[in-house]
């Protein structure tokens, strides 16, 4: 039952330190997780002294500066730099978030940057989200209908019903919530996690969708849904300010409602 030895390559070592250019006055240390599974070596943390007088305000600005000017071998994902693509999700200062919307000034002392917790690491800050995306696909995140609608008509939705999707449709699938969830850490092979469940509820709650019952059927499972114990880490870390815990509670409520 219990494993008393750590798997190979799991002990973190101290890596190199890269100093700021001479004359830099306003220095902030960035302690960054580095791991290359192909090298066969243990992961390490490298320290980079960043000249803050010559750097943008966000953590992503510093990471791009480090990659561009100090160590080009640093691997990370980033794209939009404005919190809409969800690529630069990582663990910053012990908390999951988007590097592009996390201000360096909000972090006291050294800035630690790790990949998302409890996911396989592809390299450095890039984690393998294959299972996360497959779980998202498994909730069939698209509209399912049986009733035919004339091809020249839209499927109508009232303004009030459309408003019910606010707080749900904004999810950018950055995986901050699911990888912050202890229940997802222990059982991510079977527990769908907050992101997939929020997206499932987005369609359960859509007045135009006609597969509500089938969607609920597919979630009535001790692992897929009920591993959620309302820990609320998902809601706490969501960089978009969404509330996956509430969506999961609503799904549980509907599963009871249809019994009565």
């Amino acid at each position: 039952m219990a494993e008393f030895t750590l798997p190979a390559n799991s002990i973190l070592t101290k890596g190199k330190k890269t100093a700021a250019p001479a004359g830099a006055k306003n220095i902030k240390n960035f302690i960054i997780y580095r791991y290359d599974p192909d090298s066969g070596k243990n992961p390490r943390t490298d320290t980079f002294e960043v000249d803050m007088d010559n750097c943008g305000p966000m953590v992503l600005d510093a990471l791009i500066k480090i990659k561009g000017e100090m160590d080009s071998s640093l691997a990370m994902r980033r794209s939009c730099r404005e919190g809409i693509c969800g690529s630069c999700s990582m663990n910053i200062d012990g908390r999951n978030g988007l590097a592009c919307t996390t201000a360096i000034s909000d972090i006291e002392g050294d800035v630690t940057v790790y990949p998302l917790p409890h996911q396989p690491v592809v390299k450095d800050l890039v984690s393998d989200l294959t299972n996360f995306y497959a779980q998202y696909a498994s909730v069939k995140p698209w509209m399912q209908t049986d009733a035919p609608v004339s091809p020249d008509r839209e499927r109508l939705q009232s303004k009030e019903d459309r408003e019910k999707l606010d707080g749900l449709y904004e999810c950018i699938l950055c995986a901050c919530c699911s990888t912050a969830c202890p229940s997802y850490w222990w059982n991510s092979d079977r527990y769908l996690g907050p992101a997939a469940l929020l997206n499932s509820y987005r369609w359960i709650n859509d007045s135009r969708d006609e597969a509500t019952g089938e969607r609920l059927d597919e979630l009535d499972d001790p692992f897929k849904l009920y591993r959620c114990h309302t820990i609320m880490s998902c809601t706490d870390v969501c960089p978009k300010g969404l509330n996956p815990a509430k969506s999961i509670a609503k799904i549980k409520q509907l599963l009871i409602e249809r019994k009565m």
């Binding site: 597919e218 897929k224 849904l225 009920y226």
Partner: peptide, 9 residues
């Protein structure tokens, strides 16, 4: 899905 988890809950 096992289909009976909501009963336990």
């Amino acid at each position: 899905a096992s289909g009976d988890a909501s009963h336990h809950f």
